[in-house]
Each structure stands twice: as C-alpha cells, then as structure tokens.
Design a protein around this nucleic acid. Structure first.
Lengths: 205, 205
DNA sequence: AAACTGACTATTTAAACAAAATTATCAAAA
DNA sequence: TTTTGATAATTTTGTTTAAATAGTCAGTTT
C-alpha cells in the first residue's frame, strides 16, 4: 500500500512534526512554509517535494492527530463498567483533544463554511468512532437490563453528543469570550455531568 | 415615567415600524437612514430628532420585538398542563421568533464578539423570562409529585435549554449551511422532542 | 416652543492600485 | 532519488482616492 522508502517516511514524519508545532503555536495562516523549512534547516522547495501544497501538509498533520485520537478511543472499546463511565471518558478525551490543539484548529474557524472535503471526511471518521464506542456501551447496558432496550443506539448517542455540545457552546456565547476561561471549563464539566446523569436516568425503565 | 406627547409617540412608532421592515429585509448594514426616512417621506434629520443614532434606533426596534416575545411567554405563565407542554411551547415560540426575524439579527452576527451592553441586557431579560416560565412549570410538576423535588429549578431549565440549543447548532454545523434548511428543521424538531422526553423522564423518580 | 428640513461636515466603506510577502514551480546540483 | 537556489505566480497588505453614508446644525414651518 504505502510507497516510498523508510528514509522518506522518516523525513515526512519530521516535516509533519515541525509543521504541527508551527500550526499549533501560530495557527495556519500565520505559519509560512519558509518557517517550517527553516526549523528543519531545509529548503522550502523540499517541502513541496514531500507535500503537494500547504493545505495538504496541514491535512496530513490533521490526519495524524485524528488517528491518535481515534486510537485512544478504540483502545477502550468494550472496556467500560457502565454507560456513564463511557460517556465521561468520551467527554474528557474530546475535551483534552480540543484544548490541547486549540490553535491548530484556527484553520477551521477561518475557513468556516467551506472546509475541504478531506477535512470533512476526517471529522466524519472521528464522529463514527465515537458513535461505535458509545453505541456499544449503550448496547451493553441494555443487554445487562439496566436501561430500556433501544432499537437504534446510534440515534441516542448522536442526540446526547449534540446536547453535550450545546452545554459548551452556550457557556461560551453567554460570556463574550471566544474560548471558555479556566473557570468556565469547570462549570461546563459540572453541567455536562449533570446532564449525563439525567439523560442516563431518562433511558432507564 | 414616559415623556413626550402622544403625537410624538405615534411618530416614534411609525419610525420603528419602517426601520424594522428595512432591517428585516436588508439587514442592519445594508439599511441606510435615508431609506428609512424615504419610506416615511421624511427627512433623514428628523430621524435624528427622535433617535440619537442608527444603533440606538436598531436597539429600540430590538427592544420592541423582545417585549412582544416576552409578553407572549408571560401570557402562558402557569397555564400549562405539564412540563413537556411548557417546554414545547418555549421551543416552538423561540423557533418562530428566530426564523421570522432571521435577517434582522444579522447585526448580531456582524458584531459577533462586541455587542453593545444594551443588547446583552435585552438578551438577558429574555432569557430570564424563559427561566421564570419554565422554572415555574418544573416547580408545579414537582409539587404534583410527577418528578423528583428539585432544589434549584433554574439550574435544570438552564441545562435543558443549553442541551436543546446544542441540537440546533450541531445540525447546522454538520451540514455546511449557515441556517438549517426546511428539511433539517423537521429533523431538529424531532430530535428536540426526543431529547425532551428522555430528559423529563430523567427527572422522574 | 415643538416638529421639521436642506445644506453641510465627518466618518465609514469601497475601489483601485502598488508593494510586500508568501506560495508554488523548475532546471540544475548533490 | 533527494535537495536546492533562483524565479514565477498568487495572495495578502498597505495606501490612496472617490463614493456612500452617518451625523450636525442654522434656520423654516407649524
């Protein structure tokens, strides 16, 4: 499947790492190809030897991040004691992911309405992984008889994820900050736990 | 409290109405004071006789819309048979309000992060009215013994409103449209009803 | 005096253009 | 095959000017 030598792959990795650091610290638009090349003491032209253009480089980094995130989720598949635990894991993991890479995602905010299809595919893939993980957790809980049998676990998961998302969005837009402050993070987390408890309770008999 | 003659109030009202129509059809920034004056066959200078500036005129219209919306809610205070009905009323009423005045609110989208304090006050007032209405509904339901007693109904209402908001936001951002299409509206509504049912169930014993 | 206006000024937005920065290419070297 | 310096192409940024619009005010009408 994969073409190219080991050497090539190693260099590719180095470029991805350097690019990631730049994108993370300065955002997509304030990072130049020259700077990435400079960090590696390479010529800019070499970057174009390994990646067709800047946006493809960004997407390649994104893909790597997504793969790590997905891996983290898949490691826990079917490893939960109960539904609540599964959702808390997803909430915390996603939260860490977003916080850690906040600046990296400025690409999303800038290109808002017309993200490349490839990005959408990555987002979809992440979403599906979350769905699989959490749907399984719901199914298990239903099989154990702790909650009502659900004909479509995915639908329920989707709904709860949307609702949890709302808790974040509202907290942000009520206040005027673009990104929740440290203090608000705690509040959001508390609210989410409350919502989660009520929701799970609502699934019971 | 209110100063100025009846005549003055009537003219003020006419200006507000004309301004509303313009703002609604063309948005804030694409509406000129000249046009509003023209619609009423008045000189632009007269608008400044009644309102200090353009943004204050806009805010005055906003205040009027908010007052009507708040009135609609207050009319139904303590008039619901059950909690679900109350929330459905709030969901539908808010939805209609947002859809009907969608263009009018472009002011919000443009000024995004730095809305005038007055606007925030209006938003807060609306939110508080919703809280009072729905908190009361929760309290009644608790008193009837249909759900667990809650020490802080406001907290619960706030949480559910956030969650419902999330259902809208997610539906919008998953697809690429800025505003949900007709088809999605139905989907959002269905999801919200489902969420509402689970949530209310989660509040029970 | 209160309601109103035309003519004026002050600001903001838009267009056009040049300059600078950055992306992207390519022939040639290592 | 990998790498680069030089260069072309494109995008962004800054500047100037013109146009549009917000906002003011002395003075007229009711």
């Amino acid at each position: 499947m994969s073409s190219g030598s080991d050497q090539q792959d190693i260099k590719r990795e180095k470029i991805l790492e350097a690019a990631y650091q730049r994108f993370l610290h300065y955002g997509y638009s304030k990072t130049t190809m020259n700077e990435i090349a400079g960090d590696l003491s390479l010529s800019k032209a070499l970057l174009y030897y390994y990646f067709p253009d800047k946006s493809q480089l960004y997407i390649a980094v994104m893909r790597k991040l997504a793969a790590e995130y997905i891996q983290k989720l898949q490691n826990k598949l079917n490893k939960f004691d109960n539904l609540r635990e599964a959702f808390i894991f997803q909430i915390d993991t996603q939260h860490d992911f977003v916080v850690k890479n906040y600046n990296f995602f400025d690409f999303f905010r800038v290109n808002e309405q017309n993200l490349p299809d490839t990005i959408w595919e990555i987002i979809t893939e992440i979403h599906q992984t979350e769905m699989v993980l959490l749907s399984a957790a719901i199914q298990i809980e239903a099989d154990k008889g702790n909650i009502k049998p659900v004909d479509n676990p995915g639908e329920i998961v989707d709904l709860l994820l949307d609702a949890l998302h709302g808790v974040r969005v509202s907290a942000v837009s009520h206040k005027k900050a673009m990104f929740p402050q440290k203090e608000h993070l705690e509040e959001i987390h508390t609210k989410r736990l409350l919502l989660l408890d009520i929701f799970i309770k609502g699934l019971m008999y």
